[in-house]
Design a binder for these strands. Structure first.
Lengths: 366, 366
DNA sequence: CTGAAAGCGCTTACAG
DNA sequence: CTGAAAGCGCTTACAG
């Protein structure tokens, strides 16, 4: 123990003063370590460690003194060293296969919102669910980086192979999906079904009776939820989705373009269509334009997501807004809280989409 | 040294066999460490460390044996432990303020392409250049994570405050920008000027003489490059950008919408416009549609970027394609190679955009 | 070309 | 409530 340390000990010292002296002596040449803090506060580094980790087993005065030192000299524990000792890093992984840039970026921003002010950083890991090394790669990533936890987004969040693997190696995770697929503390549910019901009601209330649907890629759970919700909404008005009016898309713009063209050939033609995402809806709008037809005069079009594309095209899309960034934040918060001792998960872990009305829908012409 | 270790030593042993025995004994219950490798290969861990770090000071036979052990038992050095000892992590940071999701995602994918097969992972760090804590925050991020290096994209890549800070703390970086702003090994140049020249030539060759320009946000270097390139391209055809035909946008869709409306009020009206990015070009197209005018009949429109929006709207945009993902890969490769001993940077560190012709441009009506 | 010792900055397991 | 010892899995600095 140094002279300074002893002094603190014996004379009930001004922690701030010794810390400021340390600052003056080092002037930012060296980042302080736990040893510096311990010495200045006149305690062992184990006690400093307890303060860092919020252990309740520390005398209040001791804690206050240590905290004063920490703040005054600007000590920040080295995440790498802590990680090595903990056998777990301070990195949160986002593993995803959703190809939509806006979804990915908004989700990242949301996760970072949830991580702000903590010691955690975000490591991104796009992947290919169809690769035969998909699980192996993910495992390798998680194990090598000793990730603190992982956030999974659709469609891989719906793949039990990956969650089985994560549980097996003891890695915490939170899944984002359109329905509850896991324990509450491991889920953020987006309730796409509710949003799709709103889309159906909107069209029904406008007076549409011949309504079509373009489905999303079947490997996404949301494709089913959005369809079911839409059918439920129609049913409230005594309407049914005729099998002829159900077209199979795969969430891409190109599939929307293609199915949009098919839509035009139906007899009698529908007066409105709900495409399970904005990309496909934009494809339908473009298909009509190419055919020289106008939206919504010839066909009302509703999308889902409310990504930028919805307002870039003309007419702008009536669509279902999903709060992607909020979802990301909730997922991060849930992940961190699942680690902490406070047992109970707070918040609902649910988000609800809502309809945004724009120019792509109107009452049917006839 | 264990019995196994000694055996290897004394009898010129089958490294594979002892490794397979180790596998059989442990069956994946425990990840092997450098100590396991050292023991099985009958060397000190320092020698194993030399092999991991490609030190030339290792006898070839020793190296081969160690490598056999490493591969057979599937040893992978712990990046966290290495990071602690190296005082530098195996994390590469991407620091950015570009708000375009597609740009961000493509850049991330490119960086990950460049990092694939290495021990490095990507940590993302969006930031706000206008915040007064911008530099401080970035410094904090880099220092706390002891980042191996950082990739900067526009517009913060053009801000010397951040590169000054990085050099001061000794953090490697690569800047992505439209012109060379730094030493070769620290730059990837996107040559926006060349792309804009192509846009000008295209319009001139179609016969346009009254050509307008919507500028990007002045705080982005690319805004100047794209304008200069465009003017140079026009000059090749004896054309000049009239001051009345230069409108100030800020790279957002909304600014394109706004300036597009102004464009229509010009007398005589231009027959073509080059908007400095796709978002603004899409805004111009929407402004015309709202005014009941057609593109390209009333006005030819050219964008820059070739992001998804270019093909989602109708008519689809003629635009300048910039290989964002390649740029990301090159930046990552350059960053890693600036670390290695092979002095010389390889590759040109330059990318060149090219024109993509679509339906938004045609010869002027009159 | 190789190795024994010390250390990176923390935490765990144990003792008091 | 607090601390001394050992350890996380590597590398540096030194010696031979």
């Amino acid at each position: 123990m140094s002279a300074v340390g002893r002094k603190v000990r014996n004379t009930a010292i001004d922690y701030r003063q010794v810390s400021e002296q340390w600052n003056a002596e080092h002037q930012g040449q060296r980042k302080p370590t736990i040893n510096d803090v311990a010495e200045l506060a006149g305690v062992s580094k184990k006690t400093v460690s307890r303060v860092i980790n919020n252990s309740p087993l520390v005398n209040e005065e001791t804690r206050d003194g240590i905290q004063t030192v920490i703040q005054t000299i600007g000590y920040q524990p080295d995440p790498q060293a802590r990680g090595l000792a903990f056998r777990r890093s301070f990195l949160v992984g986002m593993i995803y296969d959703n190809p939509n840039p806006q979804y990915v970026v908004n989700m990242q921003l949301g996760i970072l919102d949830g991580l702000r002010g903590t010691a955690y950083e975000l490591v991104v890991h796009p992947c290919d669910r169809d690769s035969d090394r998909f699980i192996e790669d993910a495992k390798q990533f998680v194990e090598l980086q000793k990730l603190h936890g992982v956030i999974l987004t659709p469609s891989i969040s719906e793949d039990d192979r990956i969650t089985d693997m994560l549980r097996e190696i003891g890695c915490a995770y939170v899944r984002v999906a359109s329905i509850a697929l896991d324990m509450e503390q491991r889920m953020i549910v987006t309730n796409d079904r509710i949003g799709s019901r709103a889309a159906a009601r909107h069209l029904a209330e406008l007076g549409h009776r011949r309504v079509a649907f373009i489905a999303g890629r079947g490997s996404f759970r949301s494709a089913h939820e959005r369809r079911s919700g839409f059918e439920e909404g129609l049913a409230e008005f005594g309407l049914k989705l005729s099998p002829d009016y159900i077209l199979q898309g795969n969430y891409t713009f190109e599939s929307g373009l293609e199915q949009g063209a098919k839509l035009l050939a139906l007899d009698p033609p529908p007066t409105a269509v709900f495409a399970a995402n904005d990309e496909m809806a934009a494809g339908v709008v473009q298909a009509l334009r190419i055919a020289g037809l106008d939206v919504p005069e010839s066909l009302s079009v509703v999308g889902f997501d409310d990504f930028e594309v919805a307002t870039r095209i003309w007419p702008r899309l009536t669509t279902v807004h999903s709060p992607t960034r909020d979802i990301g934040r909730l997922a991060a918060e849930r992940l961190l809280q699942s680690e902490s001792a406070d047992s109970e998960v707070s918040g609902t872990g649910q988000t609800t989409p809502h309809l945004v009305e724009r120019e792509s829908t109107a009452s049917p012409a006839s």
